[in-house]
Each structure stands twice: as C-alpha cells, then as structure tokens.
Write a protein that binds this DNA or RNA. Sequence first.
RNA 1: GGAGAGGUGGCCGAGUUGGUCGAAGGCGACGGUCUCGAAAACCGUUAUAUCUGCAAAGGUAUCGAGGGUUCGAAUCCCUCCCUCUCCGCCA
Length: 437
Amino acid sequence: MLDINYIRENQPKIRAAIKNKNVKVDLDQLLTLDEKRRQLITDIEGRRSEQNRTSEDIAKESDPKIKQAAIERMRELKDGLKEAEELLEPIQQEFNALLLDLPNVPLEDVPVGADESGNEILRSWGEPKKFDFEIKDHTELGETLGLLNSQRAAEVTGSRFAYIMGDLARMQFALLQYALNLLTSRKEIGRIITETGLDLPDTPFIPVVPPLMIRPEAFGRMDRLEPRDERYHIESDDLYLIGSAEHTLGPLHMDQLLKEADLPLRYVAYTAAFRREAGSYGKDTRGIIRQHQFDKIEMETFCLPEQSRKEQDLLVAIQEYFLRDLEIPYRVMNVCTGDMGKPDARQIDMECWMPGQEKYRETHSADLMTDYQARRLSTRVKRNDGSVQYVHMNDATALAMGRILVAIMENNQQSNGKIAIPKILIPLMGGQESIGQ
RNA sequence: GGAGAGGUGGCCGAGUUGGUCGAAGGCGACGGUCUCGAAAACCGUUAUAUCUGCAAAGGUAUCGAGGGUUCGAAUCCCUCCCUCUCCGCCA
C-alpha cells in the first residue's frame, strides 16, 4: 500500500508505475474519491466537535431549561451525523479498495519492460559448462541413480510431486546445514559485507521454523493472498498453505512499533512452500523444476528506510556467495517493471545455468518492498529523534531446494554417470565425494 | 472436543455504581541537575492515526473488531475474532 499523500503529490510517478507494471487501476477515480472523502471527513469532524462540546456543557449545566435545549441539540446533531456517515461509507470503501490495488513504485534503475524479455543482465559468473560426453537432464539422472521418484509420487499424491531420495535427500540437508552455518555467523555476514563494500551492520540471521499455514487476514496484509488461484486453502479452518516462508516471516512484527536499535532484523527460515501452479499447465512437466511442494531456505529482513537498498544488495551478495561456493554458473538479472511483483520496488533474480535444458533458469529472487508491505502490516520503527516511520522490508531466496538440486545434478554430472558433490558440501556429507555407485 | 478467565498506551498494569479518562501508577526511552565521566538519586518530557493549515496550532478518532442503548460508553447490551488456564486427546 502506498501513502495517499505521496500519491497526491507524485501523480506522474504513480501513473508511470501503473503503466509500466501493467496493472489496471483507475488513479483518477481514486483521486476524485479522495477529494470527496476529505470533504466529508471535515464536515463530520466539525459536527463531532460540536457534539463533544455540547456534551460537556450538559454535564456541567445546572439550569434544567438550558440543559434540555442542549439535549435537543444533541439529538439533531446525532441525526445529521448519521446521514453524513452513511454518505462517507461507500466512498471510503471504494477508496480503500483502489488504494490497495496500486502497485509499489519501481526504483529509478529498474528497467521498463512488458515481460521477462525486458529483464536486464547485470552480470554473470562462470561459463556454461561444456561436456565431452552425452549429458542427461536431472530427471534422467534422478531416475537412473534412484534419487527421484515422480511416478510413485504421482500415484500417491498427484502430478508435480516427487520423492527425493537417498543421497539427493542427504544433499538437501547438507545444503541446509551449509546455508544455516553461514547465515547465522556474524563473522561470515561481516565478511560478505566487507567484501561487497557495503556499509551495513553485521547482524547475523535469526533462524526460524515458522508456521506453514496462514490466516487470510495476515496473508492479505502481506499482499500475497492474491492471486488466490495460486494458493492452497484449507476450508475446514480457513487457513492457507504458505507459498514461501516470506508469507509467515513478514507478519512476524505486524502492528509493532520497533526501536531503531532493534534494526536490522534478519531472519532465515527453512520451510516447505506450496504452489498450485495454476495456469502453468504443460510448463516444466518433467522433473522437479516446478513442483506443487518444495523446500526452501528463505531470508527476510526488516531495516531502516535509508538502508533498504543496501540491504537488498547484501541479500543478493549472499546469494551469489552461495552459488560461487557451489560452483554453479549464474547470472544476475535486474527484473523489469512488467515482470516484477506488485509489492516490489526492485527485484533481482539469480538464474543458474542448467545444462539439461541449455538455459539459465531462475533459482533465486531478491525483493525490495520498501515500506509497501510495512504500511499494510503496520510495522513501524521509532527513530532516535522520536519520529515514527514504516520499516523497509526485503525478502530473498537463500536456496530453493528443488531447483538448486537440479543445477547441481546437471552441472556436476560426470562421464561415468555419477554426480560430483560440490566441494563445500563434502564435509557435510561425511566425506562422500560423489553420488551414484 | 468440554469448562473457565481475559483482551487498555513502547512494555507491565489501574480503571467496569456511564460524563471533567487518551486514560492513574510503574518500567523503558529522551532531556536536565549532580559528576572528570558513568551509575544512583532527583526534576521534566514522552501514544498512534487522520483532517484543516505554508506554519504555528487546532479538530477528530482510537481502551480486540463490528453493531446497539444513551444527550454522553474503556465502562451497559448483542454478535464476532483472538489469547490464556484447566480437563480430554495426542507427536
């Protein structure tokens, strides 16, 4: 949600954001309603003011005649007030709805574009691997080595589910251990900050095991309830399954007023993520690139407004650090206006090279929400000077298990059919160097 | 699932015979006195949102949410939501 004062004063910017993000919201209607709404509010508050004064007079007045006259006046005021309030209500409702529909405004360096093709490559690392043998994609590797069973999962649960088994399952836990070790270490975070040249506190991430279900209200306040088609809903309890740990990490501080000294707050969670993948029929039907359920390590941070941009850069730096450690070729994408999320002010994606598809595929995302979510959630910070501001929020993938496993499997496959375990994970897998006997 | 208690400001916590209660008190935070400095002590300040306004300032709303009674509601009535405790069940 945007600040109505900001909207009034920055109409060209908002118009551009609506257009570039390819959203349909009637800004003129919003502004008209705002005008009407404020007129009515001024009128109503004037009446209330008189009501309050008269009420005090009644309490103090001893002359029964005057008192009776005042009571009569109060009755009149009450009726007039009711009328005015009934006039305001529908206007306020439509106003609120339109306000919530407005997307966040992209930052200046976000490329303008209609869709994925407008995304900008910021940089890339590593070369797409060349193999001197016939390569397999992860599906084939997984089936051959007994690491994936989609057939059985389809029978037990349905399509887009899989059993991840054996050493691949062990690798998932090794990845978890590896990422958690790094993110919870003040020293490591400090090192990444220094190496990246960012001027930020070295606050480590607080590990969290959050709820996997969420109430519609909290979901809505995160602005993630829509598109509802994409969500799993448990009707008996009116709860939704989260599509990302972000969904229950973000509302961790809703309706709270934090202290400046509390920030930044950095959280990392490991959860399953549930997505219905409505409208993506036929896309990525093979393997585990696109699943209804996948495990993900997710970072979510709350910080001071003036630091949020750097904070996002830090999250991106961490993602790159992971991918380099894992020796996976990747590129960093500056996601364009038409492809980014509604609450995002800036979205950076990581794309990993997937030899099985001969393509870069999205594995990570880093979203800077500025104060857009915080305003809905009412997560504020009391600054040292006494002023109150909305915090800025960032969320970013640490490691999305399905896709990162795919990247490792396909990039590390060897001519003998085995999969080399990334060096960084070997100690976490008991010294084992490859998968497949 | 059964029974009970409760939801008040950054936090804790008074206030329920309806008016002068945005709300005592404590803690915290901030400013000051004292000190070389700090602690302690003492003095003072300290909610949020919104509307009008260039500002100064003022108005309005907010005691879980919504509705009702009343000239007037944190206080009374109704509905809903949430939390906690005990019992049952259970990893």
